[in-house]
Design a protein around this nucleic acid. Structure first.
Length: 250
DNA sequence: CCCTGATTCGC
DNA sequence: GCGAATCAGG
């Protein structure tokens, strides 16, 4: 694969979003993690917290030229000026060494909450060129809500899927009156909307039951929830309302 | 071991 | 310019 403009753009976006090089590489496909890192540096993207110390001298591995590596760690000391005895620590700190790097607190990705919706409401403008705007404010994740209240993740949002809660008790297919007139799993056909209502395991868990939007597994209304157009990058869409108050909190 | 990003350097 | 190899920290 080659670095097309589009792929470079994706790389920039994901890199600035804080995704790891591995995640970006996997998302783009056809490139390795190293390729992503290399490209990011070539593009001049700012480096991110790296495990390697930038301030310390980096021992140059001499030559790359397939030198035989007899010992794992060659303690080759710089024999030039080094005194014959071992010098443990430099007495003086390096001039100009930064005392405190003051690490920037990386905003952890968080699920969309009601507060985010309110916060976004007053940012009414479509920020088409939002990339240039300096907006370090943690941007809420753009997620849509899939059936059952599960969060559908956007590309690059690698996150372990929320395992469905196991039913707390076994219930017959039609245990009670509260489900008697509702659409259960057994009632589903190709012509019945199968959007879940409630949560699996609940005694009143059922399905929408409306007539489907022809060709789709859901009715027209729920198709609107399930299928959302891909908007151009840079545009933001208010998070869709959570069905039935969102994921259940235990 | 795994992960991470940084760097080098042959291509 | 590209990216595998390598390094080094967590």
């Amino acid at each position: 694969m080659s670095w097309t403009d589009e792929r470079i753009d994706q790389l920039k976006t994901m890199w600035e979003k804080g995704l790891t090089a591995s995640q970006i590489a996997e998302e783009l496909g056809g490139v390795s993690r190293n390729a992503v890192i290399g490209k990011a540096h070539r593009l001049g993207l700012k480096s991110r917290p790296s495990p390697v110390k930038p301030g310390e001298a980096k021992p140059k591995p001499a030559k790359k030229a397939e030198a035989p590596k007899p010992a794992k760690k060659v303690e080759a000391e710089a024999a030039s000026d080094a005194p014959p005895f071992k010098v443990d620590a430099p007495a003086q700190p390096v001039r100009g060494a930064a005392p405190a790097p003051a690490p920037a607190p990386a905003p952890a990705p968080r699920p969309v909450e009601a507060a985010d919706v309110a916060d976004d409401a007053d940012e009414g403008d479509l920020d088409a060129g939002a990339d240039a705007v300096a907006a370090p404010k943690p941007q809420p994740r753009i997620v849509s809500v899939g059936p059952g209240g599960f969060l559908r993740q956007g590309p690059g949002d690698q996150q372990a899927p929320i395992p469905p809660a196991p039913p707390r008790r076994l219930v017959p297919a039609r245990p009670s009156a509260e489900i008697a007139d509702k659409t259960t799993l057994l009632d589903l056909t190709d012509r019945i909307c199968r959007w879940p209502m409630g949560h699996p395991g609940e005694p009143d868990f059922h399905f929408c039951g409306q007539a489907v939007n022809p060709g789709f597994p859901y009715c027209v209304e729920h198709c609107g929830r399930a299928y959302q157009a891909q908007l151009p990058r840079g545009t933001r869409r208010p998070p869709p309302p959570m069905p039935f108050g969102g994921p259940r909190v235990r």
